[in-house]
């Protein structure tokens, strides 16, 4: 390619320049590759570590005498540091479900409707203010949200809910919901903005009102993205730790009442891992919980992806 071409200017060695260029491209490609793989390697190491520490639950006889799968699911109590330790997951499971449910019931409608408002009703000016504000909420460290839930929210909510305790699943769910709203909002807003203007025009031209258009045309057309936003919010809710640790009261009780204190999987790990004896059955149990949590959020994320793909294909008419 270079052999026959005329030099750009006298003394310009096109061939040498090209050799140099190729070398540089290769170096850059290797650096980028290294970055990409180190991220994957980090993920693999974390997964490996968590599963390795959880392994005694499934494969070590001594550990199994104290903490085992059958016990996790049949034992009704979580009392890992009592005279005879009890490792029943049921109360943690109940706590997780309650807190996550409250947070989703709170955050999903608000996040979705706020996104609908921002894309379908707000003036461009208002949208420019609203969006960064909600996204700023995502930037608030969860420890701050937890603190807010612990000190402020709890004092506001208790007089309204008449809950027997200040810190309970409902309180934690609302605080957690505040952390999830931006996730739901951002993903939904993106999805709604990607809905072609032509759908809205068609709807309005048929005599649909703006609200009918938003609800019956824009939202369904964005359903794949909205679903993904909800599932990502769910994954975050299940894994979020600091907020629930601070705002839920942390009592591991099996109860269906959202106004009772609650303890989630994630908060349990955070609260107990610091004081546990490394290598003990309790330690392995906490890692087992962590592994479960990881698998759960992993499957939620996979489901989100599959869900989005399927809806997208359906909307495209396949």
């Amino acid at each position: 390619m270079t052999t026959g071409s005329r030099p750009l200017r006298p003394g310009h060695d096109a061939a040498a320049f090209r050799r140099h260029q190729i070398l540089r491209e290769n170096v850059i490609a290797w650096i980028l590759r290294g970055c990409a793989f180190s991220a994957v390697a980090g993920l693999l190491l974390i997964v490996l570590f968590v599963f390795k520490e959880a392994w005694p639950i499934l494969g070590d006889r001594v550990t199994q005498q104290e903490a085992n799968l059958a016990g996790f699911f049949s034992q009704p109590l979580w009392q890992p540091v009592s005279e005879t330790p009890k490792y029943g997951f049921t109360p943690l499971f109940a706590g997780t479900i309650k807190v996550v449910l409250v947070s989703m019931l709170f955050a999903v409608p608000i996040g979705v409707l706020a996104a609908l408002f921002a894309t379908e009703f707000a003036s461009p000016r208002l949208r420019e203010i609203l969006k960064p504000c909600i996204e700023l909420l995502a930037g608030i460290p969860s420890v701050v949200l937890g603190f807010f839930g612990l000190m402020v929210l709890a004092s506001w909510l208790q007089p309204i809910t008449h809950a027997p305790v200040r810190l309970n699943a409902f309180n934690a769910g609302i605080a957690l919901g505040l952390g999830i709203i931006p996730t739901v909002f951002t993903v939904c807003e993106d999805a709604l903005r990607a809905v072609p203007k032509s759908f809205r025009e068609a709807s309005l031209a048929l005599g649909a009102t703006p609200w009918q258009t938003a609800w019956n045309v824009a939202l369904p057309a964005a359903s794949a993205g909205v679903g993904a936003g909800v599932l990502l919010g769910l994954a975050r809710a299940v894994g979020e730790t600091m907020i629930v640790l601070m705002a839920s009261g942390n009592a591991a009780i099996t109860s269906g009442d959202v106004f009772d204190s609650a303890r989630t999987f994630s908060a349990t790990i955070a609260a107990e891992l610091a004081e546990v004896v490394v290598g003990s059955p309790h330690y392995a149990t906490l890692f087992f919980l962590g592994a479960l949590l990881f698998l759960l959020t992993f499957f939620i994320n996979v489901a989100a992806g599959a869900f989005v793909d399927r809806l997208r294909r359906k909307l495209a008419g396949a």
Binding site: P196, E201, L206, G207
Partner: peptide, 15 residues
């Protein structure tokens, strides 16, 4: 708009 219907340049059926 119900009385004065409109058909657009690009076919735009709803999904």
């Amino acid at each position: 708009r119900r009385r004065v219907g409109m058909v657009f340049q690009r076919p735009n059926p709803f999904p």
